[in-house]
């Protein structure tokens, strides 16, 4: 059952990565690897969070790192820059629900200014959700970019096709 949970998570993450990636017009040949990286990354975060009790920030960072290394490896095969592969793959991991809760808390805070208990509750909700959203997005970007710094020379010449 756990196996199917992980598989489903990866499957839906792959669809999300393809769809959100398609808005930014990637080359056709990159779609299969975008799907693969999106699935592996999100399934990895799902495992870490549900079975190893890792918090969302660290889990996102580790998954982004895996996506980053993966994009470096796969990008060389189809002559695509790493960003073309890893940005769409990261999109399903953007913590949308926390971002929504931040906005929701802000509105409810402004609507309940005269009730101190509710006001404090929504204030706390605003800051904790905003903090998670901000940290996770930052760590996602850092995690996926880190391999590019480690393998600078290789990462910069992935699109070099006619090298003799």
């Amino acid at each position: 059952m756990i196996f199917f949970d992980i598989l489903f998570d990866g499957f839906f993450a792959a669809i999300a990565a393809i769809g959100f990636g398609a808005i930014s017009d990637p080359p056709i040949r990159s779609f299969k690897f975008i799907a693969l990286l999106g699935a592996v990354g999100h399934a990895c975060r799902f495992c870490l969070m549900n079975y190893f009790q890792v918090d969302i920030a660290v889990a996102s960072f580790v998954s982004a790192l895996i996506i980053g290394f993966g994009s470096l490896w796969l990008g060389g095969k189809i002559y695509c820059p790493t960003t073309v592969l890893y940005i769409p793959a990261l999109l399903p991991m953007i913590p949308g629900k926390f971002a929504y809760n931040t906005v929701f808390a802000q509105i409810m805070f402004l609507q309940n200014m005269d009730q101190p208990i509710l006001k404090a509750k929504y204030m706390e909700m605003f800051f904790s959700n905003g903090m998670i959203t901000f940290t996770v997005i930052f760590l996602l970007a850092i995690g996926a970019t880190l391999p590019m710094f480690i393998f600078g020379k290789k990462a910069y010449s992935l699109t070099r096709r006619f090298f003799k």
């Binding site: 971002a99 929504y100 970007a141 850092i142």
Partner: peptide, 25 residues
């Protein structure tokens, strides 16, 4: 609640967000 939250997420400008962090780093 989840339906409402996710319906607008296709608009999140993910590319400039990640490019921005890359540029700063």
């Amino acid at each position: 609640g989840i339906a409402l939250a996710t319906s607008v997420l296709y608009l999140i400008p993910g590319v400039p967000l990640i490019n921005g962090v890359i540029d700063i780093v």
